[in-house]
Every structure is written in C-alpha cells, then in structure tokens.
C-alpha cells in the first residue's frame, strides 16, 4: 500500500503537507488557534439546534414529545460509528507509514467514541420506555450499538494492558482494522436476525420522512456534534502530544513559557 502510495504522482504541496502532518509538534502548533473557533461554532449550532428541537419543533404525531430525544440520539449514534471508522483509518496510517500522530489520535478517539456509544445506547434506551413501554428491547440497532460498545471497550482494554506505547498502538491498530471489517458484518447479521426495527431516520439516499421544521434542527445538531467531536479529539490529541513528547526540547521550552 505504501509502495503504491509512494509511486503515485502527488502534487508537491500535498506530499509536503502529508509529511508535515506526521509531526506531532506541527499538529500541536497548528491546531491551537482552531480550537476556540471550532468550539464557538459547535456551541452555536448545538445551542440553536437544541432549543429549536426542544421548544419550537412540533411534536411527532405518533410519539408526542418524547421524539425530541432524537436531536441528541441520532448525532451520538452517528458519531459512535464514525469514531470507530476514524480509529481504523488511523490504524492503517500507523501501520503503513508509522506515523506517530495517528497513534495519538487513535488513543484519544477510543474513550470519546466509547462515550458517544454509551450516550447513543442510554438515550435510545430512555427513548424506548415511552415508545416500546420498556427500557431495553433486543432491537437490531440497539444490539449492534451494544456490540460496538464492547468493541470500543476491547480496544481501550488492550491499550491499557500493553505497557510499551508503540506496541500498544500497533496492536490496537490491528484490532481496530479487524473490528471495522466486522462492523458491517455484525450490523447486517443482527439486522437479518431481527427484522423488527424502525427504518433509519436519516438516510442519504431518500428524502427524510419528517417535515423540514423537524429535521432542520436535527441537521444543525448533527453538524454541531461533529464539530464538538472534532474539538474534543483535537484537544485530547494535543494533550497526548505533550505527554508523549515531554522529553523533547520544544515541549520543555513550552513548559518554561507556561511558567513565565
């Protein structure tokens, strides 16, 4: 894969950017100024989306006001899957290019993705009580999300168990790649096992069944949660960079500046 990649003709600028991106210091210094802007945009989008969804969107004709949980449930469920895919992509980058930064991102995403998976499960379960009359039902989607949570916990456990960070990173990369190939298989097998479930709310291929006044706040919240995810991953990776590079001169200098 690296062989093919190296032999493709990339524009010089792109190739330089790729190599610079491998540098944790470059990441730390470049992303610093982004954080406040991203955080502000995330707060604005989530604020508008949530207030709109909670107070102004009309109630669902079938589920009443309990459907308003959708405005946090769908973004969380979406980020739970996106986080795992991001980890697997970082795993490929780490194994192929030995890029240390990819491992730092991977280490940061695992607990954040697990938190969103937990959130998707918890809000889904709370939503289930007024809808199905019970907190837990072995519905296909809930079951696959539960298995996804186990996959996240496995990766976090593996990283914790291996002492040397380089070995831990590469082991987690392999597990993430095996896991990401398995996720669609798990999803389809569970779907097939249990055909009793609601169709996906937010499909890209067909127009949403909800009126715009109901799905626009959802769109805002999905975008906002995406930015929130980006903010937390960037912040976490920046901290991870400092911790792993604490013996280098630039981090020591940074600590001296912080002291002044």
């Amino acid at each position: 894969m690296k062989y093919i990649f190296d032999r493709l003709r990339w524009p010089d600028g792109l190739r330089r950017l790729w190599h610079r991106m491998g540098s944790p210091r470059w990441f730390y210094e470049t992303t610093g100024p982004w954080v406040p802007w991203l955080a502000a945009a995330a707060a604005l989008l989530i604020g508008v989306g949530t207030v709109w969804g909670l107070a102004y969107a009309p109630p669902d004709y079938l589920q009443g006001d309990s459907f308003r949980i959708i405005y946090i449930h769908v973004p969380a469920a979406y980020l739970a899957q996106a986080g795992y895919i991001l980890m697997a992509i970082c795993g490929v980058v780490l194994l192929v290019w030995r890029m240390k930064l990819a491992d730092m991102v991977m280490a940061t995403v695992a607990p954040i993705g697990a938190a969103f998976t937990f959130l998707a499960l918890a809000t889904g379960s709370i939503w289930g009580k007024p809808t199905w009359g019970t907190y837990w039902i072995w519905d296909a989607r809930i079951t696959s999300v539960l298995i996804l949570l186990f996959l996240y916990l496995g990766i976090m456990g593996l990283r914790r168990a291996i002492e040397r960070p380089e070995a831990a990173g590469r082991a987690c990369a392999i597990l993430a790649i095996v896991g990401v190939i398995n996720i669609p298989i798990i999803k389809y097998s569970v779907d097939w096992w249990m055909t009793l479930h609601q169709p996906a709310t937010f499909s890209v291929t067909s127009a949403p069944a909800m009126p715009p006044i109901m799905w626009l706040p959802l769109l805002l919240n999905v975008l906002g949660f995406n930015l929130l995810f980006a903010v937390s991953v960037i912040q976490g990776t920046r901290t991870e960079v400092l911790l792993r590079e604490r013996r280098t001169r630039w981090v020591t200098d940074l600590c001296r500046q912080e002291r002044a």
Binding site: T50, L54, P59, G64, D65, S66, R68, I69, I72, H73, A76, A115, F116, F118, L119, A122, T123, I126, W127, K129, P130
Partner: peptide, 17 residues
Amino acid sequence: GGHGFYVWWSYLLTAVV
C-alpha cells in the same frame, strides 16, 4: 406532554457526558 422525565433525563445525561 407527559414525557418530560424521559426527555430531560436524556438531555441531562448528554450534558454530563
């Protein structure tokens, strides 16, 4: 509309996480 408990619980939990 009677579902306040579920809705607010979800949003509170999300805020905490």
